[in-house]
Each structure stands twice: as C-alpha cells, then as structure tokens.
C-alpha cells in the first residue's frame, strides 16, 4: 500500500474525522475494494478520483453504510468516526446516516415542496421544537446552499420544478439541514452544466468551514479546484493519497501520473 500522510500543509493540524483501516468490500464474489486505508480530516475537502469502476463510489458508500441496502455487498475492515467503529453492532446505521449526510450523482429531490424537502430530515430526527424553529432551519440550510435568494418566494412550489443545478443545491440544503458532521458527495456535478457546477463548487468550499466533505469526482480539474486532499483509486486499490497539490504536480506513483496526464482511465 502506498498511503501518503500529509506533512506540511495547514490542514495537517485538522483532527481526523473518519479513519478507514484495511477496508475490503465484496460484491458477491467480486472483490471491489482491496485493503484501503484513508484518513478523512475534519473541515477539509477530500476528493476521490479514479477511472470508472475503480471503487471510489463504493468506498464512499461504506462511510455511511449505504452499502447495507445492497444484499450481496459485504464490508470488512475497520472504519471509525471520531474513534468509534461505525460497523460495530451497537451502531444504528440510520443514526449514522444522520451524522454522515450524502448528496447523490443525480439530483433527487422528493416529490414534495421545496420547504418539505429541506424540512424532511429535521422532522424525522425531531430537530425543531416548533414551526418557527423549523422555518429557521429551512432558511439557514437554503442560505448555506446558496439557494435561499432564488426560492424564498416559492417555498411551497414543488422541488422537482427547479432547474437541475437548483435541484442539486436543494439536495445539498436537504443534507445540510440534518446538521451532519460529514458530507459525502457522489459526483454531485456530473449532471449539471458548467455554471451550476461552478456554483456547487463554490458552495463546497464554503461547506468546508463546518463539515468534513468527501467528494467523488470524474473531473480532475474539479478535484484540483475544490479539494485539499486527494485519493486516487485504481482497480479497487488506493494507489496514492496525499495533498491535492502534491498529487497533481508531483505524483509519486507512476499509475497516478498516467491517470492525471490522461494515459489511463
């Protein structure tokens, strides 16, 4: 394994939020993730890059146990959140997912109003004590997702009526509303146009001040723009993990170099 520890950046001082050690994932007989060690730092954007089918999304879904919903999927190894093993029997995956929010590849607003979309998580988890408090959570989440100005006059309009970029920001607001500690994003911009992508990227940078953000992306430019740490996956292996600047300018593994210069993938 070729795991690079950060050494010299400001983020080196950030504490480790999620630590994965020796993670193996099997889909039936298929060994999808092979012995991956990654440390996700708090208040940092960590990007997972790699060619299609390299296991980066699969690994991301291990971090909030979304893989539990797939029957044939088996996860081994140890993943800790704040030092606590998330695959421990005492951990309720439902509670875990409230702490580790997720934004998906395709915007998936619920067929409800914009307000109800954002209020969904707080209502389920009983985060608001009254209507006024819920209104406040909804407004703050929409503001944090840079969507408030565009939708404040039509909170009762259906969320599915928004444009693609707005829908994705709505999904981010929905995830933010449950006040998670970590935000996982699975190619959040792959269905968006360049302008919406720029907005979401700006948003990710702002979210970093409050959460640990993990983003899976196909775009190396995007990884370079938004992340401080980058992990490169190839064929289920974690090939290289380190400072984003170092990965893109001075990769230590020849496979990383081949990928970022466009020769594999």
């Amino acid at each position: 394994m070729n795991v690079m520890r950060q050494t010299d950046d400001a983020t080196a001082t950030a504490e480790i939020k999620i630590a994965a050690k020796g993670v193996q994932v099997y889909y039936g007989d298929n060994h999808a993730i092979k012995d991956v060690d990654v440390d996700i730092a708090d208040r940092t954007v960590t990007a997972f890059i790699g060619p299609s089918g390299c296991g980066k999304s699969t690994f991301l879904r291990c971090l909030n146990r979304m893989n539990d919903t797939i029957d044939i999927c088996r996860v081994e190894g140890k993943i800790t959140l704040d030092g606590e093993d998330i695959y421990d029997k005492r951990v309720d995956p439902v509670q875990l997912r409230a702490k580790v929010g997720m934004v998906f590849q395709k915007p998936n607003p619920f067929p409800k109003s914009i307000y109800d979309n954002v209020a969904y998580g707080p209502r389920i988890h009983g985060l608001a004590r009254g209507k006024a408090e819920l209104d406040e959570i909804v407004e703050n989440s929409l503001r944090r997702a840079a969507l408030w100005g565009e939708v404040k006059d039509r909170l009762n309009a259906p969320g599915t009526g928004l444009s693609g970029g707005q829908q994705q920001r709505l999904c981010i607001a929905r995830a933010v509303a449950t006040s998670p500690e970590v935000l996982l994003m699975d190619e959040p911009c792959s269905a968006l146009d360049p302008i919406a992508t720029a907005q979401v990227e700006e948003l990710i940078d702002e979210l970093r001040s409050r959460f640990a953000v993990v983003i899976v992306t196909h775009s190396m430019q995007q990884a370079a723009r938004v992340s401080q740490k980058t992990a490169f996956f190839h064929l289920g292996n974690l090939v290289e993990f380190g400072e984003t600047g170092q990965i893109f300018t001075n990769p230590r593994d020849p496979r990383t170099e081949s990928y970022i210069t466009g020769r594999i993938g």
Partner: peptide, 25 residues
C-alpha cells in the same frame, strides 16, 4: 431508487422512507 437512496441517506428508516417518500410519490 434514487428517491429511496436520498431518504435513507438522510438517516430515515426504511419505514419512514416508504411512508414519507415512496407512497406519496
């Protein structure tokens, strides 16, 4: 399925997902 994933990803149980997202849809 993306709607179910979205709900589960927010920490809803399967039953909440069915009642609040799948059935209304």
């Amino acid at each position: 399925q993306s709607l179910r994933d979205g709900s589960l990803g927010l920490g809803a149980t399967q039953s909440e997902t069915i009642r609040l997202v799948v059935l209304p849809a």
